[in-house]
Design a binder for these strands. Structure first.
Length: 476
RNA sequence: GUGACUAUCGUCUAAUGGUAAGACAACGGUUUGUGGUACCGUGAACGAGGGUCCGAUUCCCUCUAGUCACCCCA
């Protein structure tokens, strides 16, 4: 598939592409030189930049909106049902917030953040995930004094400078849920329950949770030591990547897809065995709750997450497609230490994020119905200057009475307007011509039977509603 | 960040070393104020830049973008 241009964008018929090019290439040189001064200059011409989204970014066109609408609605409903309050935080934060929370040596921070310096000299980044900003807001606004747990919900785009492919974009959407101030494992279970609810409400099947516990920082350190000791002995059997990981982030070796690494780690020490008493207990109780809820989960001792702030519970939501391939629709976990490490009162917390783009991809794959916007059932046709003037007012009046109207005011002939009306599948067409405009009347035409009657302005709404009502009854 | 494959109207496809055909969609019309079919017509594309060549959409290179695998994750 090549880059698709929107049908809507094509409207500007007057602007021929070739003309644009010609006009541009000659005088683009001066601006180009400015661009090349920067270290890594883009090799795209000015004209291409003009008509192309940035790599990994995309337009969500009207055709796709019904899916997004359904997802948004489900998200906000579920959030309400579970007592979450909406919060919106800025797209941009100080880079430091992300490095501090997510961790300097993570992939996200190391190579995936959109970081830049503002005119004022601040180092800032586009958010690569939600939790950091929300945690910041929690502290900044003293939300620690609110009744616990504090439940916050957010939706919006996040940014990761990654190499794009299907279901992976540089700008993508997440729905995010976080609960602060409660350390009981029942919250962990409820979090997973909520995630399951959202996803299944969206019509997705073949969902499974991968859960693991990575303990608290101290137990994790013990575990990492043991893991390094185990792996170090057979270091040269690991792939190059993992050899590097061994020193930076040894638990990531468990995530490696290379056969030899998988084999090597098969009998490696498991994080679960190194859990401190409390974490072990926490995990055990979580599993009991999950069993009670009959949620589809598997314990995945290899599950590590790409963010450093997690403690104890971590989980991911996986979907399996026809070929048995699994991929993640979202994930989350507990982060009891984050608030404190950012400078707030010690506050336990847990949350998760859902990848909306992937969920929609999955909805399409499994042919889940999108949300259907209410369709106009009435068309308003107009003929002649006088009628044209009247029709705008009539449009507003009908709309005020709850009647959704389609129109094609720009068209001249009645014939072409009716053709449009027909294609739109409306049930009623209201026709106002020169004569009707003078008489303060309109023709109300039943598009199914083809019959029509002339009614005075005051009776138009009733006449329309009558036809719509009988049609509705016939359908049932 | 690494590797592989791909790139033609809005969409889906075709052909070609001599600047491109069709279908769907769009727009207009078939006697001027009445729609589903039919018929006619109109507009619309070789991703960008370089090279080879008398000549390139076609061959080569670079770039860009998309898809896939890796990496990572959502």
């Amino acid at each position: 598939m090549s880059q698709k241009k929107s049908a809507l964008a094509g409207n500007g018929k007057g602007v021929k592409k070739t003309e644009v090019k010609k006009a541009g290439t000659t005088k683009a040189s001066s601006t180009k030189n400015i661009a090349t001064k920067k270290t890594s200059a883009p090799s795209v011409s000015q004209e291409e930049m003009l008509l192309q989204t940035l790599r990994g970014m995309r337009d969500i066109l009207p055709d796709e909106q019904p899916y997004w609408e359904r997802v948004r609605k489900t998200l906000t409903h579920s959030a309400q049902e579970y007592g979450f309050q909406r919060i919106d935080t800025p797209l941009v934060e100080f880079t430091h917030l992300f490095t501090r929370s997510i961790g300097t040596e993570t992939d996200i921070v190391e190579k995936e953040m959109y970081t830049f310096t503002t005119r004022g000299g601040d180092k800032v980044s586009l958010r690569p995930e939600f939790t950091a900003g929300i945690a910041r807001a929690f502290i900044e606004h003293g939300m620690g004094v609110l009744p616990k747990p504090v439940k916050l919900f957010s939706v919006g785009p996040v940014y990761r400078y990654d190499r794009p492919q299907e279901g992976r974009y540089r700008e993508f959407w997440q729905g995010n849920f976080d609960m602060f101030g409660e350390s009981d494992p029942i919250l962990d279970a409820q979090t997973i329950q909520l995630a399951y609810r959202v996803v299944s409400q969206l019509g997705l099947r073949n969902i499974e949770f991968q859960v693991n516990s990575i303990g608290v920082p101290e137990s994790r350190r013990d575990y990492e030591k043991a893991l390094v000791r185990y792996l170090d002995a057979q270091k040269n059997k690991l792939c190059q990547n993992c050899r590097d990981r061994l020193t930076v982030s040894p638990m990531r070796v468990l995530d490696c897809k290379e056969d030899k690494c998988i084999q090597l780690t098969a009998h490696a020490p498991q994080s679960l065995d190194y859990l401190d008493e409390e974490s072990r207990n926490h995990f055990k109780r979580l599993l009991e709750y999950l069993d009670e809820l009959e949620l589809p989960y598997t314990i995945n001792t290899r599950l590590v997450r790409g963010l450093n702030y997690y403690t104890k519970t971590v989980f991911e939501i996986w979907s399996t497609d026809k070929d048995g391939k699994k991929y993640s629709l979202g994930g989350g976990g507990r982060y009891d230490g984050l608030i404190q490490s950012l400078g707030g009162e010690s506050t336990p917390a847990i949350g998760f994020g859902l990848g909306l783009d992937r969920i929609i991809l999955e909805m399409k794959r499994t042919q889940v119905k999108p949300y259907n916007e209410p369709k106009a059932r009435v068309f308003l046709a107009q003929l002649g200057d006088m009628a044209k003037k009247k029709s705008l007012k009539l449009f507003a009046e009908l709309e005020k009475n709850g009647i959704l109207i389609a129109e094609s005011f720009g068209r001249g002939s009645l014939k072409s307007q009716l053709r449009v009306a027909n294609r739109l599948g409306v049930e009623v067409t209201v026709i106002v011509g020169q004569k009707e405009a003078l008489d303060e009347t309109a023709i109300v035409k039943d598009m199914i039977s083809g019959t029509q009657e002339t009614v005075t302005n005051g009776r138009i709404v009733d006449a329309i509603k009558k036809i719509l009502k009988t049609n509705q009854e016939l359908k049932v």
